[in-house]
Design a binder for these strands. Structure first.
Length: 641
RNA sequence: GCGCCCGUAGCUCAGCUGGAUAGAGCGCCGGACUUCGAAUCCGUAGGUCGCAGGUUCGAAUCCUGCCGGGCGCGCCA
């Protein structure tokens, strides 16, 4: 019997007992078996309120009746040892020895695979990360990367076939900005010559472009040409709302106008903007020099990304480059045009009337000059991916500001390819904010991914040196890297995806309490127990049974029950696409064992015989579960902290 | 204006297919290291679950309205 079989057994025992009172099975299955508030009340329980309507009796009376039917249904030696009622609730208590044998036996059997589902899985594709190649990755990407990576691990653990894909945005006007700045001001320097990491090197030029552009824009605002634009806007109806708000304060209006006009200036008046757009045109025409420069700079960035991904322990099965996929969608748009789902607008743009997909308004799918937009590309890549891989489920890990985009995308895809319906998911997550508010590149408050990890590792290093003074530098460095990474990953993943993360580097990142290092510590301390007793006991099945049957204290059962729930948690994390379920349960496992470990009555050194062996096996099983949980978060284990 | 999300302890967050006394970490206060690793453990205090209605035997959870915050509604991505 496995844990899942036990849960099924309890479920059908409940359903049969309820059915025995004459109520329909469909009512019975609606009543969930939950855990009573206090474990002394039982292992599982359920309320009988819902039966009152059918039986026209008071719930406590029904509970008695159901409990009786439950008792009658038990076979000789059933793992359900006791059935009790508490008012309208029926509670089941399991035989401690048999439960322990079952749960711990399974953990020892499955080792670091403990909790993995072994059903025939489906095919999943998870797209995450999706960085631009004009600047290094920041805290926002970190959350995306960690969510995508952990989710992929969880899905894989639940025996699905998972393809992790990245879609790198390596083309477009923003890429040309850093290219142009490099061409104008780079003076031939390279990441090698300056000793910078490639993505940071290129990012510096992206920032430089924006600085130069802002300076140019500010100069231009002083010209008479700018005045003319401002005056003509001021006299247009568009200015009316702002005029009212600013009470005709001309300075305020001027600032408001030029704040808003920035994009138009870039496209219509700016010298730098013109050069960047010219560069994009030449890139699209395949101009040798531009393509060469683009390749060089992209290589620098991608090499930098590789380093970052590697340090974070993140890998992809397939990397799509937008430069190769951005025109994919054009045929799809033509197909939709032919089928009448889309239509040609007067100005030459191809649009989809969103009322056809249950929304309002319309969406441009191909510009009037027949170039593609974001939506065009996403239509194309989605269909390409299904044709190539035919995933049963496709998840896009993308920030919540794009919810509408994906809503539209999925609806259009469902029209174009009805078989996709219900298979597309947007794992939408909230932004990461600093205590002082949003990260703003203009104000230099963007938290860089590499810097952040460095900082975490440094803090870990200090913590290690404080505690273990006689370690050599290599050891400190090795441990600090893992501990720092664990702190960061656990911290970020412990938020539910939709929550806006408050990231306080000063206070929030802690190595104590519910944290990655706490879980690592739990693992390492068990490893230490293993060393103390020269390895885990090697017992035949009779000896193992008697060792496990020697357990049964409340503290021991706390650990057993926490492990019992672990496989279900994995399924839940899967269903909800939420690694936070894993961080939560992992902490519960570590915490339950830590309590036992610190308890005077559970000191293994002071015990002997089957009870000592039982505790050692419990420790060993717990260690497997912790290892499994940490791995699902992408955190490697340490035998010593 | 319309749409989506959020509002739970001093702080940061879980819980939201309705079910038993609303949880955790941090912080506060008080305890436990000659004894398996104290990055640990034990205990105390701390909540009108934004507000007001409604549905229900039962609401933090579902519905409606309001208040407060975030995001979206581009031939940007």
């Amino acid at each position: 019997m496995r844990i899942q079989d036990l849960e099924n057994h309890l479920e059908s025992a409940k359903n049969n007992a309820i059915a025995a009172t004459g109520v329909d099975q469909s009512v019975a299955v609606e009543i969930a078996l939950a855990e009573p508030p206090d474990p002394t009340m039982g292992d599982r329980g359920f309320p009988c309120f819902a039966l009152a309507r059918h039986l026209r009796k008071a719930p406590p009376l029904i509970a008695e009746e159901v409990a009786e039917a439950l008792r009658d249904g038990l076979s000789e030696g059933d793992i359900i040892a006791e059935i009790s009622t508490a008012g309208p609730y029926v509670n089941l208590t399991l035989d401690r020895g048999r439960l322990t044998e079952l749960v711990i036996g399974q953990a020892l059997d499955e080792k670091a695979e403990f909790g993995a589902a072994n059903v025939d899985g489906s095919r999943w594709m998870v797209e995450f990360s999706a960085p631009n190649t004009n600047k290094p990755q920041h805290l926002g990407h970190v959350r995306n990367n960690l969510l995508g990576d952990s989710l992929s691990r969880v899905l894989d653990f639940a025996s699905n076939d998972v393809q992790r894909v990245n879609l790198i945005n390596d083309r477009g006007i923003h890429i040309c900005k850093s290219m142009l700045a490099y061409e104008l001001f780079g003076d031939g320097e390279t990441p090698e010559s300056t000793g910078e990491k490639g993505d940071h090197f290129v990012g510096r030029y992206y920032v430089l472009f924006n600085q130069k552009f802002v300076a140019e824009y500010e100069d231009w605002q002083k010209t008479s040409e700018a005045d003319r634009h401002f005056e003509s806007w001021l006299n247009s109806p568009e200015a009316k709302p702002l005029k009212e708000r600013h009470k005709d304060d001309k300075n305020a209006l001027r600032n408001a106008f030029f704040d808003d006009y920035s994009d138009t200036y870039f496209n219509e008046n700016s010298d730098l903007g013109g050069q960047a757009r010219e560069m994009l045109r030449r890139w699209e025409d395949g101009d040798d020099d531009i393509v060469e420069l683009w390749k060089r700079m992209n290589r620098w960035v991608l090499d930098g990304f590789d380093e970052t991904y590697k340090r974070f322990g993140i890998e992809f099965d397939k990397i799509y480059l937008e430069s190769e996929t951005y025109e994919f969608g054009k045929d799809v748009v033509q197909e939709g045009l032919d089928s009448g789902l889309f239509h040609l607008r007067d100005d030459g743009a191809v649009v989809c009337d969103l009322e056809k997909v249950g929304l309002e308004g319309e969406k441009v799918l191909l510009r009037s000059d027949k170039t593609s937009v974001y939506m065009t590309q996403d239509l194309g890549t989605a269909i390409t991916r299904f044709d190539e891989y035919e995933p049963d489920q496709m998840v896009y890990v993308v920030a919540d500001e794009q919810e509408y985009h994906f809503d539209v995308l999925f609806r259009i895809l469902a029209e174009l390819r009805p078989r996709f319906e219900g298979r597309l998911h947007h794992l939408s997550y909230g932004l990461v904010e600093l205590p002082e508010g949003k990260m703003k590149s203009r104000e230099g408050t963007v938290v860089d991914a590499d810097d952040l990890l460095d900082e975490m590792v440094n803090l870990a290093e200090e913590a290690i040196e404080e505690r273990y003074s006689d370690l050599d530098d290599d050891d400190i460095e090795r441990r600090a890297e893992i501990i720092g990474l664990a702190a960061l990953k656990y911290y970020i993943l412990d938020f539910g995806p939709r929550t806006t993360v408050q990231f306080d580097p000063e206070r929030s990142i802690d190595f104590q309490g519910r944290t990655g290092p706490y879980c690592l510590y739990g693992y390492a301390r068990i490893a230490s127990i293993g060393r103390r007793f020269n390895g885990w006991p090697e017992l035949d099945s009779d000896q193992q049974a008697s060792a496990l049957n020697a357990l049964g204290s409340e503290r021991e059962m706390d650990v057993v029950r926490t492990l019992q729930r672990w496989p279900e948690t994995v399924i839940k994390a899967c269903d909800q696409l939420n690694p936070g379920r894993i961080t939560e349960h992992l902490f519960e496992i570590c915490s339950a064992f830590s309590s036992l470990y610190n308890d005077a009555d559970h000191r293994i050194v002071e015990l002997d015989g089957p009870r000592r062996n039982g505790l050692l096996l419990l420790a060993q099983a717990t260690q497997y579960a912790i290892a499994a949980g940490l791995d699902l978060l992408g955190i490697p284990t340490l035998e010593e902290m």
